[in-house]
Write a protein that binds this DNA or RNA. Structure first.
Lengths: 339, 339
DNA sequence: TTGTACGCGTTATCAT
DNA sequence: ATGATAACGCGTACAA
C-alpha cells in the first residue's frame, strides 16, 4: 500500500510537507503543492486513517447499534438519516446489530471501543424504554427512538407519538366524527400508550363522553410474535347497530386490516366509514384506494438529528434538555370523509 | 486511553508479554497470565485496532455500500444478513449509503480505502444491473442483489426471480387456473423482466395460449417516482365479461392494490378470484385476509451468503461460477383457491 | 518463558 | 516555507 513516504520521495519533499498538503495546512509553496498533488494522484495515494488515529486519538467515526430491524420496515430510515448527516460532515459509520441479545450488545460496545469510535448512536427499531448494556465501556452516546430508564441519564431523541395521535384525533373531530372506534397497538409498545392516551385526552377535551367510543385491543403478546385480533375486532366494531363513523388504528398495518374488513363487509371508504392509521408505512398507505390518512413517524429526521446531537455532545456542549422530541406530521389523504 | 504499556507496568511485565496474553499466544506462565489478565480487567484495557492494523495491514472490517433504502422496505434485511455473518466471524462492518449519487459513491470508495477495509459488499436495494463507480480504488468486492454489466467481472449474488415466478405460475396452473391476469412491474426493474418471462414460459410449457392471458402494465417511470396504474388495471381486468380466475402481480404492493380493487368490486378472495404477489412484504402479506400467497425474496440470505463469499474471495479462493443465485421460496397462504 | 529493538504511517514539535 | 525527529500502540524478529 502506497504511503506518505512514497509520495514524498516522488515529489522530492519531506513526509511532513506531504502531510501538510493532505491536511490542507497553510505554508506550502504553490509549486511544491502542485508537485505533491501530482505525486498523490499518480501514485493513487489514500491516507491511512488507522495511522492518523494512532496519533490524534480521533477516529472521525460513529458507531450505530441497532436491536432488530426486520419487523418494522421503515425504521431503517433512521440509519439512512444518520448516514446522510455523517456523510455531509466527514464522518464514517460503523454498524452493528445485536438481534436483541445482551451478550452481543456487550461485545459490540467492546468492538466499538477497540476501533476508538468517537460516539455511539443507540437505535431501537420500535419506540421504547431502554438501558444500554455497555459494561464498563464509556463512549458518548445518543439514544434514538427510545428513552433511558428512570435512573439513567442519556441524551436522547424520540418521535412525539402523543402529539401525532392528538392531531389525528382532533382532525377526525373537526371532520364531524363523534362515534369513533379505536383499535389499540400492542400495549408493550411505548407508542401504544402514548397514542391511546392522546386519543382519550383529545376526546375528553372535546367534551365527548367515552361512551361514544369503541376501544378494542388489536394485538398483544411478545414483539415479533404477537397475536393479531385486528380483522376480527374491526369486523365486530363495524357490524354493531350503531356503527362508528370512523376507526382509528394503532398503526398503518392495523389500518390495512381494518380497511380489508370494511371492504369485505361491503362498506366503502370514506363514505360509510373513515379510517386513519399511524406511522405512514408508505407501501401500505399509498397502495390503498383511497389512500390512507395517517401520521408520519419522522424516522429519517430522528436519525439525522441524533447524529447532529451526538456531534454537539462530542464538542462538549451541554445539551439541555437532554431529551428531544420530533413531531409526527399529519398526512391528510383520502380515507377520511366529513360528516 | 489505556494502552498495552499501562497494563504491562501494572502487571510488572513487558509490553510483549501483555501482547501475548491478548492474542492468546502460547508460552506464557500461568501466574503471569493471571496477573496480566487482572491488570487488563482493572484498567479496562481494550486493544487498539488501529495500531494493530498498521502492523498487519488487515483491518478485519467489511464495508457495505448501498444505493437507496427507503422505497423497498425489507431490503434492509440484506444488511442484517451481512451483519450476522460478520458478527459470527469476528468482522466489523462499515456502512455507507450513496443515495444514488455517483460523486458520493466515489467518495465512499476512497473513504473505505482510507480505512483499509478488507472487502466491499456492494448492495443495491432493487434487483438490477450495475457498474460500481470505484474510480482507481481496488478492493475485493461482491455484488449483492445486482449483477455487473456485460464487460465487467465481479463476484455476485442475486435472487432467482425467474424460478420464483415460474413456481408461482405453476402453482396457479396446478390449482386449475387457466384464465390468468398479469400485472407487470416497472419494466426498468430487472426483476420485472425475469418474472414476466418466467410467467410466459410456464404458460407456454403448459400448452396454454397467451390468449387466455390478460397482461397489463402496473407501473412505469423513474424508480421512486413511478406512475401507478395498478388499481385501474386490476379493476379493468376484473370487470371484463370473461373474468380471469386469478391475477398474478409483479409484487406484493401491487397485489395489495389488486386485492383492494377486487374487494371494492364486491368480489371475494379466493372464491371469485385468486391473487398472488411476489417479494413477501410481510406487513402486507400477513395483514390481508386471507393472507397473501407469494414468493419470498431471500434478502437476509442474500446478505449472509454474500459476506461468506467475500470471505472466500479474500482467502484467495477462485469462486466459480462467480455468479450465484438464491431461490425465491413459494409461500402458500390463503389467497389462492382451486378451480 | 520473557524481554528488547525496531518498524508500521501518520502527526506534533521544534528547528532551520 | 520546509524538514528532522519523536511519538502514538502494537506486532515481528530475535535475543536472553
Amino acid at each position: 500500500m502506497v504511503s506518505i513516504k512514497d509520495v514524498a520521495r516522488l515529489a522530492g519533499v519531506s513526509d511532513k510537507t506531504v502531510s501538510r498538503v493532505v491536511n490542507k495546512e497553510p505554508n506550502v509553496h504553490a509549486d511544491t503543492l502542485q508537485r505533491v498533488e501530482a505525486a498523490i494522484v499518480s501514485l493513487g495515494y489514500v491516507p491511512n486513517m488507522a495511522a492518523r488515529l494512532i496519533r490524534s486519538n480521533r477516529s472521525r467515526t460513529f458507531g450505530i447499534i441497532t436491536d432488530f430491524i426486520s419487523t418494522t420496515p421503515y425504521s431503517g430510515d433512521i440509519v439512512r438519516g444518520i448516514q446522510d448527516w455523517a456523510n455531509a460532515n466527514g464522518r464514517t459509520v460503523f454498524l452493528a446489530n445485536t438481534n436483541g441479545s445482551l451478550e452481543r450488545e456487550r461485545e459490540t460496545w467492546r468492538t466499538f471501543q477497540s476501533h476508538r469510535i468517537d460516539g455511539v448512536l443507540y437505535v431501537t427499531m420500535y419506540h421504547r424504554v431502554i438501558d444500554p448494556e455497555s459494561g464498563d465501556v464509556h463512549i458518548p452516546t445518543v439514544l434514538v427512538n427510545c428513552r433511558p430508564g428512570p435512573n439513567r441519564s442519556y441524551v436522547s431523541i424520540e418521535p412525539d407519538d402523543f402529539q401525532g395521535s392528538r392531531d389525528l384525533t382532533k382532525y377526525l373531530l373537526e371532520q364531524g366524527h363523534r362515534r369513533i372506534g379505536y383499535i389499540r397497538l400492542n400495549p408493550r409498545l411505548l407508542g401504544a400508550q402514548l397514542r391511546y392516551e392522546a386519543f382519550r385526552e383529545a376526546i375528553r377535551d372535546a367534551g365527548l363522553s367515552e361512551q361514544n367510543l369503541n376501544v378494542r385491543l388489536g394485538m398483544d403478546g411478545q414483539i415479533g410474535e404477537e397475536n393479531n385480533y385486528v380483522f376480527a375486532a374491526a369486523t365486530e366494531i363495524l357490524t354493531q347497530p350503531e356503527r362508528p363513523t370512523a376507526i382509528m388504528c394503532g398503526n398503518d398495518e392495523m389500518a390495512l386490516q381494518a380497511y380489508i374488513a370494511a371492504l369485505s363487509l361491503g362498506l366503502s371508504i370514506p363514505t360509510d366509514v373513515s379510517i386513519v392509521g399511524f406511522d405512514d408505512f408508505r407501501t401500505v398507505s399509498h397502495a390503498l384506494k383511497p389512500e390512507l390518512t395517517t401520521a408520519a413517524l419522522p424516522y429519517y429526521d430522528l436519525g439525522y438529528c441524533s447524529a447532529e446531537r451526538l456531534e454537539r455532545l462530542l464538542e462538549g456542549e451541554d445539551l439541555d434538555p437532554k431529551h428531544a422530541t420530533l413531531p409526527c406530521r399529519l398526512v391528510e389523504r383520502g380515507s377520511v370523509g366529513a360528516i
